[in-house]
């Protein structure tokens, strides 16, 4: 299913960004943890929906992604599955506030994309799950947004 494969790849891009952000800014790991947990749950559901053999650059085979996260993240001590799934380099801002803003922006964009997938999905059951994932991304964006974070 094209939508599932696309959503899976997009989820993995955000997971890679979250992983790289946590590596560059260890003090953010705790705040990022709920988002990481949510996207890992999303990936598990989407992986079940993607037929075998469809290329979604799985995180379990880093060799399939020539340009990986850790290479653009100088303080990363070791390769991580979380940062190897994206085809594009993962750039993490050096300032924590900017890094958080980048993650919040990525969550917001993912939410918008997932809503678009949900709108188009032929299966109502799958649309419901995609819509829920979009809502989760919107929650993550709200929580990680620095302005709101300052309040909590």
């Amino acid at each position: 299913m094209a939508i599932a494969a696309s959503a899976l790849a997009e989820q993995q891009v955000v997971l890679a960004l979250l992983g790289a952000t946590g590596q560059r800014h260890p003090r953010l790991v705790a705040r990022l943890a709920p988002a990481v947990e949510a996207h890992e749950a999303h990936v598990a559901v989407l992986a079940d929906a993607v037929p075998e053999g469809v290329d979604v650059t799985p995180s379990s085979s880093p060799s399939s992604s020539p340009s990986t996260g850790p290479s653009s993240s100088p303080r990363s001590p070791s390769p991580s599955a979380e940062t190897s799934s994206s085809g594009a380099p993962v750039r993490v801002p050096g300032r924590r506030s900017a890094a958080m803003a980048a993650v919040a922006r990525a969550e917001r964009e993912l939410g918008t994309t997932l809503k678009r997938h949900a709108f188009k999905a032929e299966s109502g059951a799958f649309a419901r799950v995609l819509g829920s994932m979009a809502a989760a991304a919107a929650q993550n964006a709200a929580v990680l947004d620095t302005a709101r974070g300052a309040r909590s």
Partner: peptide
Amino acid sequence: LDALEDTSVRMLDLGADPEPFPGV
């Protein structure tokens, strides 16, 4: 979809924690 997103964010302001699958 829009209502689900809005209500999921509204929950946070009311003290809820983010969850992987709001509404499901």
